[in-house]
Amino acid sequence: MIYADRKTGVIVSGATGNQGSFHINRMNMYARSVGARGVVAGVTPGKGGQEVHNVPVYNSIMEAAEKQDASAAVLFVPGSAAGDSIMEAADAGLDLVITITEHIAVHDVMRAVTYAQVRGCKVIGPNCPGLFSPGEISMGIMPAHLASRGSVGVISRSGTLTYEVVHELTRAGIGQSTIIGIGGDPIIGQTFADVLDRFADDPLTEAVVILGELGGNLEEEGAKAADLPVVAFIAGTTAPPEKRMGHAGAIVTGGEGDANAKISRLRDLGVPVAERLSQIPGFIREQMKCH
């Protein structure tokens, strides 16, 4: 597993909202089932002193990090506050901040991600389902019942597409080491390349599935430098140009980011690209046999 494990203490900001409190409960139910520490503090400005599902709530990430032993944060705050919260988590000395929030202004993300990097804090997301390491930790909103423990890493720009693939892998008897949604926005913190680097150092992980989509070229950049066998799937091959397909980052602009061109570049790099999701387990088996 990478980025976090069962010893990681987690702060959730946006703790008292619907999403925040619902997912604190789910994350901690999972933590209890695997003997992990899970969420140790919640944050909502002005709600300090309350509790959410027995988790103490503080007024700021700074205060939560002082009072509780935590090294990571998961953000459910509104889009207008998310850039600020990322910088606050970095200033509080946390190592990792996972931003579930969507609809954040791109300039806010750009500034916050750069600032966090200066402070030595890794950002995952925004607009992502978070991180899930079966048997270790759940940090985000991924449904636990679809996953199973094993040696395949999954990196994705999407949420439900990830669940679909994890479900396919599990049904085929292929377990996962860590599943990471890196987010569907034009600018994101950790990229395919960053996460692939981590997987390369992870003794558990033997191969990686990357789930990309139209827009940008992060999939190719990641695959180019990958030390582990990689299998890819790219969504959006039928998207019309200049139309945004749901995700803010899923758009072809100025002739860049076309899904079919992306697929041919990946194939040129020797990466098997599945045309159907159901092919992924077979491709992964093939890759793991070869190496």
Partner: peptide, 12 residues
Amino acid sequence: GNGAGLTMATVD
């Protein structure tokens, strides 16, 4: 569909 990626994959 629900989720941009899954919906795109369905269309594809």
